[in-house]
Design a protein around this nucleic acid. Structure first.
Lengths: 202, 202
DNA sequence: GCCGAAGTTAGTCATACGATCAAGATGTTT
DNA sequence: AAACATCTTGATCGTATGACTAACTTCGGC
């Protein structure tokens, strides 16, 4: 029974919660299952967190930070088209590399919809905002309409969500890697056409 | 207290189950809630169905049939490109028109993933098979590789899923109608390029 | 007016939940 | 080594909610 500082314990609980949410959904993520996944006692969970709510609050914050990090690290700091493509690819690749995070994210969005929970939706609002920011920065030297940024952000979201649903449903890693390429091609083809008609508008 | 034949009662329970699943998830879809939604007594449910499992079995069959119908009705019986586009558009439009069905579908796919439930996945397997069949028929006069059919079916699935997640999350009908057009454009642009290099191959 | 189908009431029984406590173990400070 | 804060545990409480059932009442055709 190694003694572990509460700060690290909390970290363990957050990651354990992600695993359990991925496996059983948010409603199925009970304090007992999370404690077991964290190799801790149920009472330990309440020693680190006043309530299940408090833990979930940290889980949401962790998810938001993770999305933000993935988007930032994928940012090619290049042209708008390249930046957009790399963000899309980065998110899809992260889903493949971290299926538990991906599954937990989709459980979260589904749960948030049911409960009309703003804190859940906020995670994805922040992610979309991060994408928009990166795209705006990338197009600084050659500005485009804000609506164009929104549209690109929407398509990135749609393609990554659609990819994620398929990957999580069938869990075929080899197929998923190939689908990343197909999805990226779909995106590139559209974006080239979308940006071409207005190379130097306004 | 109108007396209703058991056959129609069963139908009511199926539709009530869809509503409850959409609102509370599959795990949250209890017999009590379903009975209440159907304006029936809890015991009535067990009078019409031996068990909750039996009811859900009918719900899955209903979902599979609905997908099949939507795809069939969207089939333009025209070129491959047009058929594919209209199926994509038909599915997206049905999601917008029937948000409860859409939400229940996404709950189902999420639940099936967690439980590794083949019966849940089968609903979507059947839908994909329907799409493939329609695409193959549409390309009969000008055959394409089976891999091309698979790829188009995948992209239709990805785009409709991604669209659905967004629509269900934000529930903005006006935005969704506009996003149907954007998504369709993304698809058309890609498919034109995808089919162009091989207009009369083999 | 009777008889079976349709519908209702009021429960049983079991399980699982979040939360809390008293008590003990461990490590650190003095 | 005493005193103290930190960490760990098993047991337990009250609740709520689940699927399902037995016994009863009403209705409609004959």
């Amino acid at each position: 029974m190694a003694r572990i500082p509460a700060a690290q314990r909390r970290n363990d609980f957050i990651h354990a919660a992600v695993e359990v949410i991925a496996a059983h959904g948010i409603d199925g993520a009970t304090t007992r299952k999370i404690a077991e996944q964290a190799n801790a006692n149920l009472a330990m969970l309440h020693y680190c967190y006043d309530s299940k709510e408090a833990l979930f609050s940290d889980v949401f914050a962790y998810a938001a930070t993770t999305y933000s990090d993935v988007i930032r690290k994928s940012d090619a700091h290049s042209t708008l088209a390249e930046t957009a493509r790399e963000i899309l690819r980065g998110v899809m690749q992260y889903y493949v590399d971290s299926p538990s995070f991906a599954a937990a994210s989709f459980e979260l969005i589904s749960w948030a919809r049911r409960q009309h929970e703003d804190r859940g939706i906020a995670v994805f609002d922040e992610a979309v905002a991060s994408v928009r920011r990166a795209l705006t920065d990338a197009s600084a030297s050659n500005p485009v309409q804000p609506e164009t940024i929104d549209e690109i952000a929407y398509v990135i979201g749609t393609l990554s969500d659609g990819f994620g649903v398929n990957w999580l449903t069938y869990g075929d890693r080899a197929a998923a890697e190939a689908q990343i390429d197909v999805t990226t091609t779909v995106f590139d083809t559209w974006l080239a056409t979308r940006l071409a008609p207005l190379p130097a508008a306004s």
